[in-house]
């Protein structure tokens, strides 16, 4: 498998706080990579750095054979690396349809837009087809998360970075979301941040553990669960 995404030696400091400390992460094409760690361990900073929201102090990021270090967010998105946000982000005052059409603008420009059938299939899969005229802000959180996902898939991403995709969902919804994410693997590669081990164990092929900005483990979920340092510093605590 080829490397889809390579982050080397990422460092970021916020004043006295080292948010990222020499972090190396490699994701292969088609692989589902998980990232776990307690609150404040630098997971979201990592995604922000990769997608260009956050300027790095040092380090390089390659995506699909291209150096995207320091590239602005809209260009990263155009390059095929989509992301979602920890607190769901949609155009709350616009209709679901307008949200989706706005997300399609980029591919419209590239004349590479999704075919009508592809769109119908996507919206049917995410069970949004009956909600198109609703104001996006009036949707349930679960629907909003699905809308967020649909908007990203309208851009034909190669890799999608999900920041806590089941955060705030009810137990039944979590199960439904897990199924959606498992099916999503057939559409693009997934990088997923979570701080519940259960979700990661079910989804990810490989897991990176981040604690206070430092990568302390990297491997298949089964091994991570047995890793002594991870147990001591993370799993053994109340966070997981």
């Amino acid at each position: 498998m080829t490397d889809l995404f390579v982050a080397r030696d990422l460092c970021k400091r916020f004043g006295g706080l080292q948010a990222l400390r020499n972090v190396d992460v490699v994701q292969r094409a088609g692989e589902t990579l998980g990232m776990i760690g307690p609150n404040g361990s630098g997971k979201t900073s990592f995604v922000n750095a990769v997608t260009g929201e956050l300027a790095l102090d040092s380090g390089t990021i390659d995506f699909a054979g291209r150096d995207i270090t320091g590239v602005r967010p809209h260009k990263v998105a155009r390059a095929g690396l989509a992301r979602t946000f920890q607190a769901v982000r949609i155009f709350a005052r616009l209709s679901v349809r307008d949200n989706l059409q706005t997300a399609m603008l980029v591919l419209d420009d590239a004349a590479n837009s999704l075919e009508a059938e592809e769109r119908v299939e996507l919206l049917h899969w995410l069970k949004l087809d009956h909600r198109l005229d609703a104001v996006a802000g009036s949707l349930t959180l679960f629907e909003q998360r699905r809308l967020e996902l649909a908007m990203r898939l309208m851009m034909r991403p190669q890799l999608i970075m999900l920041d806590e995709p089941v955060g705030g969902l009810a137990p039944g919804e979590i199960r439904a979301m897990m199924q959606i994410l498992n099916e999503l693997k057939a559409r693009c590669s997934i990088f997923v941040i979570e701080h519940t081990m259960r979700v990661i164990r079910e989804l990810a092929d490989r897991v990176v553990v981040l604690i206070t900005g430092e990568k302390i483990a990297d491997g298949p979920p089964v091994d991570i669960l047995k890793d002594q340092r991870v147990i001591e510093q993370y799993l053994g605590t109340a966070h997981a």
Partner: peptide
């Protein structure tokens, strides 16, 4: 922020 995330050059 969302506009940038879906590829719009703000």
């Amino acid at each position: 922020v969302l506009a940038e995330a879906i590829g719009i050059d703000v």
